[in-house]
Measured scan of single mutants.
Amino acid sequence: DVEPGKFYKGVVTRIEKYGAFINLNEQVRGLLRPRDMISLRLENLNVGDEIIVQAIDVRPEKREIDFKYIP
């Protein structure tokens, strides 16, 4: 289970104008929005990159997770 405030290693699987989709595993995916990136820009991410993200909002009923990147 993903818990708000905890850090997780994930893989960038898709990049859109509104953010990057990060997979923690095959069943768990969330969104990293540009506003939640500190010292990292969306255009510097590539599909396949491994990054450490912090879960900031977890909505299991909608199967949605918002992430934050903190270097």
Results as ranks from 00 to 15, higher is better:
I56P: 01
E3R: 11
I56N: 06
G10L: 03
I52L: 12
V53I: 08
V12I: 13
E50G: 12
P34C: 07
R63E: 11
I70L: 12
Q27L: 14
E26A: 15
G30W: 03
D36G: 03
F21Y: 14
T13D: 07
L24S: 01
V11G: 02
K17R: 14
N25H: 09
R41N: 11
P71F: 05
Q27G: 12
R59T: 05
K68S: 12
E61T: 11
A55K: 03
I52P: 02
R14A: 12
I70F: 12
E16S: 11
P60G: 09
G19I: 03
L40D: 05
I51T: 01
E64M: 12
K9Y: 12
D66K: 08
R63K: 14
D1Q: 15
K17A: 14
K17S: 14
I70Q: 10
N46C: 12
P4N: 10
V2M: 07
P34K: 13
I38G: 15
K62V: 12
R59E: 04
K6Q: 11
E61K: 11
M37T: 05
R35V: 10
R35S: 11
K6S: 09
K17T: 13
P71T: 08
R14D: 05
P71E: 09
V11A: 05
K9Q: 10
E26T: 14
Y8K: 00
R29N: 09
V12A: 01
E16Y: 12
E64K: 07
G10W: 15
I51R: 00
L31T: 04
P60E: 09
L42H: 04
K68L: 10
E61H: 13
D66T: 09
R41D: 11
V58W: 08
Y69E: 06
V53A: 02
N23K: 13
L40W: 04
N46A: 15
D49R: 05
L45V: 07
Y69L: 06
R14P: 00
N46K: 15
G10N: 00
E64Y: 13
Q54R: 07
I56K: 12
R33D: 04
I65R: 02
I51C: 04
I51F: 04
Y8N: 00
G10S: 02
A20K: 00
V28G: 04
D1A: 15
R59Y: 07
K17F: 13
G19Q: 03
G10E: 00
I15D: 00
V53F: 02
V58D: 02
E50P: 12
Y8L: 02
Y18Q: 07
K6E: 09
Y8A: 01
F21D: 02
V28Y: 10
V12L: 03
K62L: 14
D57M: 12
I65D: 02
V2F: 11
F7W: 13
G19Y: 06
G48W: 08
I38A: 11
I22K: 00
K6Y: 09
I51L: 13
L42M: 08
D66P: 02
N23D: 12
I56A: 10
R35H: 11
I38E: 14
L45F: 05
N46E: 13
M37S: 05
N44L: 11
I22F: 03
E16G: 09
L32T: 01
D36S: 06
K68N: 05
K6I: 09
E50I: 15
S39K: 13
I22M: 01
R59D: 08
I65Q: 03
F7A: 06
